[in-house]
């Protein structure tokens, strides 16, 4: 499977990455070679192999349902470019 320029542009858009037009062929080539490697692995007989969801062979620890976090809004909002009335302000997302 190989990717064309249109697919590269779509992937970049979904990931919100701005890429230069001149770099598209190189991205297409490199991403395609990753997919080719994956395609080659498809040939391996995986009968009886459990799908791996995580490289660590461990189980998720759970935490008790307790409130442990205090309000630190002022600290967090000091990092934000714009706040008002306790809200984070961002460029308008609907017209």
């Amino acid at each position: 499977m190989s990717l064309g320029p249109a697919e590269v542009a779509k992937i970049a858009h979904l990931a919100r990455l701005a890429i230069a037009e001149s770099d598209v062929p190189a991205y297409a080539r490199n991403l395609s070679s990753i997919l080719e490697l994956v395609a080659r692995m498809d040939a391996v007989d995986t009968t009886g192999v459990e799908p791996l969801a995580h490289p660590l062979d461990m189980v998720q620890r759970l935490r008790a349902d307790e409130v442990t976090e205090a309000d630190r809004r002022d600290d967090f909002q000091s990092l934000a470019p714009q706040v008002e009335a306790g809200l984070y302000l961002v460029p308008r997302v609907i017209e």
Binding site: R63, E66, V67, T68, E69, R73, A85, G86
Partner: peptide, 20 residues
């Protein structure tokens, strides 16, 4: 009482962003 992945409270109607 708390969020699914954190210990912040889930109560409804708090001042904006005080439970994040």
């Amino acid at each position: 009482k708390s969020k699914i992945f954190s210990g912040a409270p889930t109560a409804y109607g708090a001042e904006p962003n005080t439970q994040a």
